[in-house]
Lab assay of single mutants.
Amino acid sequence: EAEIKAARERAIVPLEARMKQFKDMLLERGVSAFSTWEKELHKIVFDPRYLLLNPKERKQVFDQYVKTR
Score class of each variant (00 low, 15 high):
60 Q>P: 06
65 Y>V: 06
14 P>V: 04
17 A>S: 10
5 K>S: 07
64 Q>K: 13
62 F>S: 01
55 P>Q: 12
7 A>E: 10
49 R>K: 03
68 T>Y: 07
39 K>W: 03
26 L>Q: 00
67 K>C: 09
33 A>E: 14
1 E>I: 11
63 D>T: 10
63 D>Q: 11
16 E>H: 11
44 I>H: 02
32 S>K: 13
5 K>I: 07
60 Q>E: 10
47 D>A: 01
26 L>R: 00
52 L>V: 07
25 M>F: 03
24 D>R: 07
23 K>Q: 11
30 G>E: 08
11 A>L: 11
19 M>S: 10
36 T>G: 05
16 E>Y: 09
48 P>S: 14
23 K>S: 14
17 A>Q: 11
1 E>K: 14
33 A>V: 12
42 H>T: 10
49 R>S: 03
40 E>R: 01
27 L>H: 08
57 E>K: 09
48 P>A: 10
11 A>M: 15
68 T>N: 14
45 V>F: 12
52 L>R: 04
6 A>G: 15
54 N>S: 13
34 F>S: 15
33 A>H: 09
27 L>A: 14
23 K>I: 05
60 Q>R: 10
60 Q>T: 08
24 D>Y: 04
17 A>L: 08
28 E>P: 00
52 L>S: 07
30 G>P: 01
61 V>T: 13
46 F>M: 13
43 K>N: 03
5 K>A: 06
25 M>T: 01
14 P>F: 04
36 T>V: 08
47 D>Q: 02
44 I>P: 00
49 R>Q: 02
54 N>Q: 15
37 W>P: 04
18 R>L: 03
55 P>M: 09
23 K>A: 14
67 K>M: 12
11 A>V: 11
49 R>L: 01
55 P>F: 15
64 Q>C: 09
46 F>P: 13
15 L>C: 04
37 W>D: 02
21 Q>A: 10
29 R>S: 10
65 Y>P: 00
12 I>W: 07
66 V>N: 06
58 R>T: 03
54 N>Y: 05
7 A>M: 12
24 D>M: 07
20 K>L: 03
56 K>E: 14
69 R>I: 15
42 H>C: 09
61 V>R: 01
26 L>Y: 01
37 W>K: 01
57 E>S: 07
31 V>P: 01
63 D>F: 06
9 E>I: 05
21 Q>Y: 08
29 R>Q: 14
60 Q>I: 09
59 K>N: 09
50 Y>Q: 01
19 M>Y: 07
24 D>H: 14
15 L>P: 07
59 K>I: 04
46 F>V: 14
36 T>C: 12
58 R>W: 01
6 A>V: 11
46 F>Y: 11
25 M>Y: 02
48 P>K: 12
44 I>E: 01
27 L>P: 05
65 Y>I: 03
11 A>S: 12
13 V>W: 05
2 A>C: 03
68 T>G: 09
59 K>T: 11
16 E>Q: 09
39 K>F: 03
12 I>T: 14
66 V>P: 02
34 F>M: 15
41 L>T: 11
39 K>V: 06
1 E>D: 04
50 Y>A: 02
11 A>I: 11
19 M>R: 15
6 A>F: 07
54 N>I: 02
23 K>H: 14
56 K>R: 13
50 Y>R: 03
61 V>Q: 11
45 V>D: 15
49 R>I: 02
67 K>R: 12
31 V>C: 11
54 N>T: 11
34 F>I: 10
67 K>V: 13
43 K>M: 01
31 V>S: 01
47 D>N: 01
68 T>A: 14
5 K>E: 15
64 Q>P: 01
30 G>Q: 09
33 A>G: 11
1 E>R: 10
66 V>K: 05
24 D>K: 13
35 S>P: 02
59 K>L: 14
41 L>F: 13
69 R>C: 15
65 Y>N: 01
51 L>K: 08
13 V>M: 11
45 V>E: 15
67 K>Y: 09
34 F>A: 13
46 F>K: 15
39 K>H: 06
46 F>E: 15
56 K>P: 13
16 E>K: 12
17 A>Y: 09
47 D>W: 00
53 L>S: 01
21 Q>W: 04
25 M>D: 00
36 T>E: 07
58 R>M: 04
